[in-house]
Design a protein around this nucleic acid. Structure first.
Lengths: 137, 137
DNA sequence: TATCATATCGTAATGGTTACGATTTGTAAA
DNA sequence: TTTACAAATCGTAACCATTACGATATGATA
């Protein structure tokens, strides 16, 4: 998902294009990994003095709903990243910088065989640790 | 992990055995699935009027540290269950009742092959949905 | 049974998130 | 281009799970 696609998606859903919304997209495009609401607020405050929590959280939820962002919970805090739409995969997540590496392995087909009569709605497979760069730092 | 093992484990680590600590163990043994701090407080208040948050959370953390409980985060709230010590496995978790079913599949060996130079510290593989009982209810 | 480290209490503080009335601003129609 | 209005944002308070702390009570050991 890139910025142009995201703006198009918002328009399709009838949402307005505002400066802040564009800046939020820019932030996540540059981030290339998971970021928190706090990270985003810090970024936006450079351009907008006194940005409202309401604006930040409302847009994060909106973006998540329409599929621009995906989210995961780490240490009691929600983290967001640009959605990878192309195909199903999972992530290695660096605990230090938040950057992710795609993992192609998904064991769900195998798992489904062992879960007769269970209604599977969702699954989460994440690997945590330090990326090569952050090990050196 | 059963209650006797857990109490033994606490003693080994030099922690005292109190009525509340035993009751917390009873709660989780009967629970047979993931429960929140709130659930536990509700249970303890039946026997102890005005139980302190401090007591509840301190003991939950303690139990997690010594390996009596394992924990996961669902919907922004920490959930705890008795630790399954016997072997490495993952869980299907029912969104309704919190009960779990063990999943023997673990794709980490395969994943490790694709993560050269990454320092893997941890991983999470969980399946969410409704168990057979909760689908009927 | 005396001692003392540990456990608990009562409650306030913290941190992330949500909510809301008032105000501003894109957008599309006139 | 102006108007009209729904949507977006602001400023701030409330919410909820969790953490923290000084004072008090209580298991465990000697």
């Amino acid at each position: 998902m890139n910025i142009a696609e995201a703006i198009e998606l918002l328009k399709e859903h009838g949402y307005k294009t505002t400066g802040k919304r564009k800046d939020i997209l820019t932030f996540f495009e540059e981030a290339d990994g998971y970021r928190t609401a706090k990270d985003l607020i810090q970024y936006l405050e450079e351009s907008y003095d006194g940005i409202s929590f309401d604006t930040v959280y409302r847009n994060l939820h909106l973006y998540n709903e329409v599929g621009i962002l995906e989210t995961t919970e780490l240490n009691g805090e929600k983290h967001f990243r640009m959605n990878c739409t192309h195909h199903h995969h999972h992530h290695f997540i660096c605990k230090d910088c938040g950057k992710t590496k795609e993992i192609e392995v998904c064991p769900m087909n195998e798992v489904k065989k062992t879960l007769h009569n269970y209604a599977i709605e969702d699954h989460k497979f994440e690997i945590y640790g330090l990326c090569p760069k952050c090990q050196l730092a």
